[in-house]
Design a protein around this nucleic acid. Structure first.
Lengths: 198, 198, 198, 198
DNA sequence: AATGAATGAGGTTTCATTCAT
DNA sequence: CATGAATGAAACCTCATTCAT
């Protein structure tokens, strides 16, 4: 039941890593949470580091797929941008534990993070591509797509995290259902019209 | 020379904490970097945790003072907002190591972070206050000041971090001098007019 | 194909044990080297210890047989002694990995070694018997046969080991072919006439 | 009390390593035997490996000094050789635990042993030098000094080890007092005159 | 005020062995 | 006969903290 076991470990690891962060997470806790012996984790993963990396790569991959799928449903740049935001916000709400890891560990400096930031870069690229198409098609102004995409990613992710921490008692499902639309509305309004009155 | 010693420890601690993150930073390294014995750190600080908290509080206090000072120079909301952004961006660029800590450790979940997030909250509040005044005075639209201020903080901080990591070889001074204006311009344009063309 | 499998395991085990020593040798490595699953080893041997013991007993048995066979070809004590030395030296050269194990593990103190040292004792006894006959027949002086046989065994085995380690790149075959005669000549001269000039 | 502590650890380590061999020796046992906390060992030595290496280097250094001192008392080659044998045999008897380590660990293959065999080489060199002088001065026959010195070292060390294991209940002091002379006599006779009768 | 040797709880990793298939 | 996933006891090592000087 390899498939099964690795799955249990993955789930447990996401939970424990998100609760405690990489360094404070204990392999013991992950093993207990997964309902397997500690040695079993090491049978499937070389080290704590490898487990973490595998985990994040998996999560980011899933997130990217989810986002791309949702975005392909529409073509018009402004709608595409909203779809993108909706997808990312809702995904992060649903996987709040993963979201915490994402922002907490990207900036912690060690070798592992190099590969890690590359993934984040891809998420930003998705935003950038939408912006570029929008600029080309005349929907968006002549902004710097690269820098703007980073700013949008920051605005979105920090906002989501803030809510996750505020409503710590809500499930990911509940958060996603009730908070996605307001947050996306806010971001969209900000991005579309800015804050100036006239 | 208590003043002297505490100062050395502070400087060393900022550096080591920023390089390694809280958990991977060793008291031994801080002591070596500061040129004092390990016991000396414990003579001045109760624990690693207290040292870290003192450090961050100090840094955030300084940042808040710096920001408030710069903001008080102007009254008009849009100018005030630009002054605010300029101040924060330039401060974070100049203290890149501190900036890393700021974003890396806010999200790592443990008791210490309660107090910590409260400080971040204050930074967001500064933004929020500007927004609220602007709304009241009719300069800004009727946006949700609280949520928007968080989004702005996210956009600003993640953008800065991205640049700090990209141009890792540049000194804080250099980064602040060359990158502050472009980044603030980008953010201001985004916030003022949004990205839509007409 | 039990015969086949056990053979593969034996060969792999000699190699891995000799390369790493008993404690550093991993059942995993032996299994991989043998091209079988780890469980298979345990189907044929109760434990790592048993595998090792079986291995050494087998090797020592083979060595003793080889030595006795070569010795029985001659009767005269001095010739017998040379035949004995030639046989042991050539056997150890040819099975350098086994030779390493022999000297490395005899002295490592644990229960298993009781049985093990008994085997070594037998090798020394072969030498002792030759000496005793030689003394009785008036060919050798009235030396202490027991102690002298041990000294001879030590001189022989350490010399061989030294050469095995020195010319680590040579095959057992090559070593046996080129180095046996010189080494035996040296030992024989030492034993026959000693080092004093007149 | 650094001097003191390191000394306690050294003594405990020699004992435990010799009783169990490198791999089976537990840092826990060494700590308990030394009467210090496990961490204390790591405060003074980087790793188990380093502790072991430091230990062996120290022991070999002491042995070499002891041997050289004893040898310098006489000038005539045959007397020098006897002095040398007496010194080595008596040293190994007195430090039986060290002797076990010496022969058990030299042959166990890993990086650390490279440096280790170099030390053994020096011990052999002392013998070789005596042989060379003896040959030059016409006391010894034209033997191969290098190979012969190795054989002598093997004969001597294996004989000593054998006795150490046989009379395991005797103290090093007792062994040295009662067995040194017989063993050296045997070796000397073997080396001087060989075993042939006429 | 400052030191640094000593501590020990706690964490990661290893690996011989088992057992259901 | 053979497999290999799973186990868990045990080992090495780390490091925040203490305390006598």
């Amino acid at each position: 039941m390899s498939r099964e076991t690795v799955g249990m470990i993955f789930e447990a690891a996401v939970k424990v890593f998100a609760e405690r962060g990489f360094d404070r997470a204990k392999m013991d806790d992950i093993a207990r949470e997964a309902g397997v012996a500690k040695g079993t984790i090491y049978y499937h993963f070389t080290s704590k580091d490898e487990l973490f990396t595998a985990l994040m790569n998996h999560g980011l991959q899933k997130m990217k797929e989810y986002v791309r799928r949702r975005m392909d449903e529409v073509k018009q740049p402004t709608l595409k941008l909203r779809g993108l935001l909706e997808a990312e916000v809702s995904y992060l709400f649903q996987h709040g534990t993963f979201a915490k890891l994402l922002l907490a560990e990207v900036w912690s400096s060690n070798e592992r993070q190099y590969e890690f930031r590359a993934h984040i870069h891809e998420l930003e690229s998705i935003i950038r591509e939408v912006l570029e198409v929008g600029i080309q098609e005349g929907d968006f102004r002549e902004i710097n797509a690269t820098e703007t995409s980073i700013a949008i990613f920051g605005a979105m992710s920090v906002t989501v995290l803030q809510e996750v921490f505020r409503d710590i008692h809500l499930s990911g499902e509940e958060l996603a259902n009730t908070r996605t639309t307001p947050v996306v509305d806010m971001l969209e309004m900000l991005l579309h019209q800015g804050i100036l009155k006239n």
